[in-house]
Write a protein that binds this DNA or RNA. Structure first.
Lengths: 223, 223
DNA sequence: CCGGAAATAATTTGATCATATTCTGTCCGC
DNA sequence: GCGGACAGAATATGATCAAATTATTTCCGG
């Protein structure tokens, strides 16, 4: 059979280099659990699937591996990492150390517009949970935290946190697939109240709770 | 002129893929300040200098950029990042959040052999300082922290911290070049005492001091 | 004669390179 | 000062080589 059209998912992002498009595509796939933990990823498979040469694919993979989103197998195969209890613990520690600091900063900088935007995202998040829409939950939850981190204006910390989300994304998806959208932690209401009040300490505390509960959920879901 | 022999610094690591060798070489160059902040790095320059094709060089650069060791210029040129005050502040926050935790864990796991090895490294560090040997100071100081982090057995946290060191390496070298090895902070004695006593809290506190003083030094050195 | 382990052949996949194409910034002539 | 040609550098492709996994065959013991 001939090669089908080069994957509609790359239609946007025209003008960007091919390796950047491949990177973004794979990144969202990992972040939202479209690839499951342990799944193998081959270079040639991606070149066929995405309709680009191997050099851009290679670079995108190298970048994702450096960020921990993908991992080398014992041999030289590439796959989505499988988290063990120790990994989840370390990711939780790192998140608990960094994300409250971002929330603290956001509380001192958030404008009324910023908070309104966050509240709108949180409303979409609640609707997705009520609907039992796992993909919607993952998307909107990430969006909420990403918008909050952007307000903090700390690009280095934000990049580090993004890397952490990338690492537990596939596992979070698995856990949500098991338990649905019930029992999902959500300290966003406390957080929004703290932002309204410009209360840095309360914002940091709310974020700490949100992170702790979220990681506990993942740990529990992996038995 | 013809191309000279393919760089003696790549002689070791035989058997590893070329992109891995290029990555390690560039990584140590950045980590120990052999490249100064703002310096441009070209792909073709590296292919000539290291005697490899451009694909391995491309992958190594992509990886280093993902780790923050190198950065894109406005156009698509690559250079060593120049840190501003905000960047140093965020790096300091992240280090202060993560490295004390690693010290805490190391205190609960360190064997007598581990501590002896650390003490030997610290002795070499002191000799380098007394000698005014900047390169030796940078090497042994990094080695001390790397050995300590290895004891903590937390690979994810250790990787994150390694990435942070990569970011401020070039600037630390500049500061040391300005001020020599005088006034360099060193809470390593407190740290070793805490390890001897298996005192996690004291180890974390000593590391927090070491990090804070080190980052303050860098911030001061950049005016 | 049958089943399974070891050895070997075939396919798949990763690594590297040489080359072509595109883009950016610069320099010269008008 | 402006526009177009030129040079340099990065991006992207396909071909080629090496390593590894899988499939197949062979051979031996029961």
């Amino acid at each position: 059979m001939g090669n089908q059209e080069p994957d509609t998912a790359l239609r946007d992002g025209a003008g960007l280099p091919a390796h950047e498009r491949v990177y973004r595509r794979l990144r969202t796939m990992v972040l939202f659990g479209e690839l499951e933990p342990g799944q193998a990823v081959t270079i040639q498979g991606l070149t066929n699937q995405l309709g680009v040469g191997m050099t851009p694919v290679r670079e995108a993979l190298r970048r994702l591996i450096a960020e921990g989103a993908l991992a080398f197998q014992d041999n030289r195969r590439i796959c989505v990492p499988v988290l063990d209890a120790a990994a989840v613990e370390q990711l939780g520690l790192a998140r608990a150390a960094l994300e409250p600091e971002l929330a603290r900063r956001a509380a001192t900088r958030a404008t009324a517009d910023d908070i309104a935007r966050l509240r709108a995202t949180d409303a979409r998040l609640d609707r997705a949970i009520a609907r039992g829409d796992v993909a919607g939950y993952l998307t909107q939850n990430h969006r909420f935290h990403a918008e909050l981190n952007a307000i903090a204006e700390a690009p280095i910390l934000t990049d580090m946190v993004d890397g952490l989300w990338l690492r537990f994304g596939p596992s979070l998806r698995v856990v949500c697939g098991l338990f649905g959208t019930r029992n999902l932690p959500d300290r966003h209401k406390d957080l929004l109240a703290a932002l309204d009040a410009r209360d840095s300490a309360a914002a940091a505390e709310a974020m700490h709770q949100d992170v702790s509960q979220g990681m506990a959920q993942i740990r529990a879901g992996l038995e």
